[in-house]
Amino acid sequence: MTESSAVGGAPRRHPTAGFRIFEGQATIVMPDGSFIHVLNEIGSRVWDLLNGQRTESEIVDRICAEFETSREVAEKDVREFLAALEANRMLG
């Protein structure tokens, strides 16, 4: 997770990612073609929210509102998830 993409800024899905969200589950194909990523329900929702217009904090707000989870847990999960996306070069 980098400063610009995930903390304080408005993280964004990588624009070259191919993806569909079907029955709440996101399937993502990155152009290097090496992996197909399948996200769980909350991960899929976060992915859907990563349009470059919402801050990490606003994404956490939405997750807290839509899923039964405490803010503390949601913050930790979203942060870790964004870090994983960053590590896989799926943000941009």
Partner: peptide, 8 residues
């Protein structure tokens, strides 16, 4: 096609 998020 890319704007529509297809894997091409």
């Amino acid at each position: 096609a890319q704007r529509l998020h297809f894997a091409i």
